[in-house]
């Protein structure tokens, strides 16, 4: 019988140990919330969200492509107005605008405008539902279409992990993680883990609450 060389055993052991330690480290950084903590979090989130009619913030989007060791970074302005209006205005490196208002989505690509019914786009429809639920503090009401888990970091930030169960969505999105800041219960980060093994991270900064007084940014032609 052939003996496995010592150096191979050493390599395998060191890789296995590093994986175990990485796993422990990840678990240390993120702990599951207890049932009472979940109730406390969702109650507070709902209370704060009920006072919010609009949010305007800057955002950055990082698309991470492991296969190319590339990170694509975009910046812009994000606007949300209660109850179902969203705008992602990309300003750098390209100008691009996506508006969702009710059941319609408008894309403005350098003046070329396209309006799409959300019923024809399952993924965007679900994304809208998720962002809306996050900002309205109604994540727990998303229903059976998602599996939802709550975690807490040492810093106090709460991360809500949402795993889609609907096939048309789960074929594209594996998991969405929504990070809430403990001080104001606002969404500061949203991570989209795709079935394609790539990941998009949205960071929301400089959030201004209740500053949008009209619907002009959300108008769909």
């Amino acid at each position: 019988m052939k003996r496995i060389p010592d150096y191979i055993i050493r390599v395998v052991l060191s890789v296995a140990l590093s994986v175990v330690f990485c796993g422990l480290k990840a678990q240390d950084n993120k702990m599951a919330l207890s049932q009472s903590e979940i109730v406390g979090f969702t109650t507070s989130l709902q209370r704060v969200s009920s006072t919010i009619s609009s949010i305007e913030s800057s955002f950055s989007q990082e698309k991470i492509l492991q296969m190319f060791s590339k990170k694509m970074v975009s910046h812009g302005t994000f606007r949300y107005k209660r109850e179902d209006k969203l705008e992602f205005l990309y300003t750098s490196p390209m100008k691009y605008r996506m508006v969702i208002n009710g059941g319609k989505m408008m894309i403005d690509n350098g003046g070329k405008i396209q309006v799409i019914g959300l019923n024809n786009n399952a993924v965007v429809k679900e994304m809208k539902a998720l962002i809306q639920a996050s900002f309205l503090g109604k994540l727990h009401e998303l229903g059976d279409s998602y599996s939802i888990s709550y975690f807490k970091e040492k810093s106090g930030t709460v991360i809500v992990e949402v795993i889609p169960k609907i096939k048309s969505v789960s074929d594209m999105i594996k998991k969405i993680s929504v990070t809430f800041e403990p001080s104001n219960y606002l969404v500061s980060r949203l991570i989209l883990e795709e079935a394609s093994q790539s990941e998009t991270v949205y960071y929301f900064k400089n959030q201004q609450i209740n500053t949008i007084n009209n619907d002009e940014n959300f108008y769909i032609k």
């Binding site: 989007q61 492509l65 296969m67 190319f68 990309y90 996506m98 594209m172 989209l192 790539s198 949205y202």
Partner: peptide, 10 residues
């Protein structure tokens, strides 16, 4: 070849 939407999805 990888095509991504501006919104980030592959």
């Amino acid at each position: 070849f990888v095509l991504t939407s501006h919104f980030g999805m592959t």
